[in-house]
Design a protein around this nucleic acid. Structure first.
Lengths: 167, 167
DNA sequence: GATCGCTTCTTGAATTTTAAACAAAAGACG
DNA sequence: CGTCTTTTGTTTAAAATTCAAGAAGCGATC
């Protein structure tokens, strides 16, 4: 007697919709805000900043492409393009990997360090103002936990993804 | 005796960094996930879906460009391009505004409604699985509140932004 | 009713992202 | 070794986004 070809999906409740819309709304505004701040004050979008930070924190300021792509959760293709652009700016340089001739390191240059150091204070201030000044310590903690769980659920999950041969 | 040209910025504490990284991490993964799901199952990116939803919910399935852009928190330029693309697909159509010759309505077509109805169940399921199945009711509530506050802080704020002459 | 400023929306070019195909080296396995 | 599969990273073209500029209507003011 069911006339639909598929089960009627469980729509979101009003409360769930409110949460979801707040989520989309806030993340859209925040991304935009940070992108503009960095573009204006440092001449780079958020993703570039993020990339430079990853390198700055890595040993010898360098990372393999694949490793960097995984840390940033972007495709290798996108990373390839991004590194090419950053290389053109002189903030980053490529180096061959001695142990694997396919491999490439991306290395943060001194100039890149300088740019990062100039950009960091403004960016941190923007993040602090947008997030931490809006939330009580409890709210911050709750936000962190929720985000951690969401990420956990989406993550390719080391155990399975890195070991596909475990069928 | 301060050697720095500007005050040493207040960096994020370890705890704040954890929260912030979880935030970036989760939102990156989620956006990616939803984009892929919609692209795969409905042939459109998340933003298009969002746009169709806005129209579907509006009276007479139509909105002025500026209104739509504001609801979606995107620039009018981006919206112009997006509507052009959707129009080409036949999911949307433009109509002149009778009372303001500059104005344009974007109207959801019947075909657009159909596409939306097909896409909705999968999208809702993806959102439910990624967010609501990961969080307890309390956590959902806390997440919604935090996001609401963050959005609040970033929003051009009707009162001030719409009345700039109040200096 | 002319003019000035503002709003609405579009356009075109440059930048960025995505998707798919590819080359080259590594590794596995006979 | 020789072959087959996987990994690594790049490249090309198409799609999407941004940025700056511009056309056209509106509305107020003199």
């Amino acid at each position: 007697m069911n006339t639909a070809p598929v089960d009627e999906p469980r729509w979101l409740s009003d409360e769930e919709q409110r949460v979801w819309r707040a989520f989309v709304h806030a993340t859209t505004l925040l991304e935009d805000h940070l992108d503009r701040q960095l573009q204006r004050d440092a001449g780079m979008p958020h993703i570039y900043y993020h990339l430079l930070v990853q390198l700055a924190e890595a040993p010898h300021r360098r990372l393999r492409m694949t490793e960097l792509a995984m840390r940033m959760k972007i495709t290798r293709s996108r990373l390839s393009h991004a590194v090419a652009r950053l290389e053109k700016k002189g903030w980053v340089r490529r180096e061959d990997c001695p142990s694997d001739k396919r491999g490439q390191f991306t290395v943060l240059t001194d100039q890149g360090v300088g740019v990062l150091e100039e950009a960091a204070p403004g960016h941190v201030a923007a993040v602090r103002q947008a997030i931490f000044e809006q939330l009580s310590p409890d709210q911050q903690k709750a936000l962190g936990e929720a985000m951690g769980l969401i990420a956990e659920g989406l993550q390719p999950k080391e155990a399975g993804a890195d070991l596909p041969w475990l069928r």
